[in-house]
Amino acid sequence: MNFELSAREKELSAKAREFCDQVLVPLEIITDEHGELPMDRREAVKQAVRDWGFAGINHSKENGGLGLTMVEQTAIEEQLGRVTNGLWSCVWRPPVSLKFGTQAQKDAYLKPANQGYRRGAFAISEEGAGSDPRQVKTTAHLRGGKWHINGEKWFVTSYNASDFVIVHAHVDDDPNKPTLFLVDKPAEKMVHLRSPTFMHNFAFDHAELRFDDLELDEDKMLGEIGQGFELTKDWFVEARLQIASHSIGAATRAAELANDYATNRHQFDRPIRDFQGIEFMLADMAVEIFAAKSALYRVAWEIDSGVDRKQVHAHASALKLHCSEVAGRVIDKALQVLGGRGYMRENPVERLYRDIRVDRIWEGTSEIQRVVIGGQIRKRGLSVYTDVT
Rank of each mutant, 00 (worst) to 15 (best):
T365N: 13
T84D: 08
L222H: 05
L80M: 11
Y297I: 08
E256V: 12
G86N: 06
G35V: 12
L222E: 12
Q135G: 15
T74Y: 04
K293C: 14
T69R: 07
F236N: 05
D274G: 02
E72C: 04
R351W: 10
F211L: 08
F275V: 05
F54W: 01
E279W: 10
R351T: 05
V307R: 10
E302W: 11
Q79L: 08
T197P: 00
L352A: 13
T139S: 15
S305N: 07
R42H: 03
P26C: 09
K320L: 05
R345C: 04
G364D: 04
V91T: 07
E43Q: 11
T74P: 01
A250Q: 09
G130Q: 15
R265I: 00
F211I: 03
F19G: 08
T157E: 03
T389L: 15
Q276L: 14
I30H: 07
T157L: 03
A55D: 11
L80Y: 07
N150G: 00
H200G: 10
E238R: 08
I76C: 09
R370I: 13
M70I: 06
I30D: 13
Y353F: 14
H168C: 12
N58P: 01
L110K: 01
E9F: 06
R380F: 13
W147Y: 06
Q115C: 09
D21T: 02
G128E: 14
D332P: 00
R253V: 06
Q115I: 01
R360M: 09
F198S: 13
V372H: 08
D274H: 11
L382N: 12
F202N: 08
G364Q: 03
W147G: 01
F181K: 04
Q79H: 07
A254H: 01
G342V: 02
D172C: 08
P186G: 04
G151L: 03
H206Y: 11
A169F: 05
L110D: 03
D107R: 02
T74H: 02
A262L: 06
I124N: 08
E230K: 05
R42T: 02
H59V: 09
P271A: 07
M285Y: 04
C323M: 12
M344Q: 14
K233H: 10
Q227W: 03
D355W: 01
M344A: 14
T138Y: 05
W147F: 04
L214G: 05
D172N: 15
K185D: 02
I248V: 13
M344S: 12
R118V: 09
D284C: 15
A123S: 10
L282T: 08
T31M: 11
L282M: 10
L193A: 01
Q276H: 12
E77F: 13
I149F: 08
P271W: 02
F211Q: 06
I76G: 05
I303L: 09
G144R: 11
E28L: 00
F211W: 03
R345A: 10
R118P: 04
G374W: 03
S247W: 00
F181Q: 05
I29V: 13
K293W: 09
P95F: 05
E188S: 10
G328V: 00
R50L: 13
Y343Q: 14
V371F: 15
I373D: 04
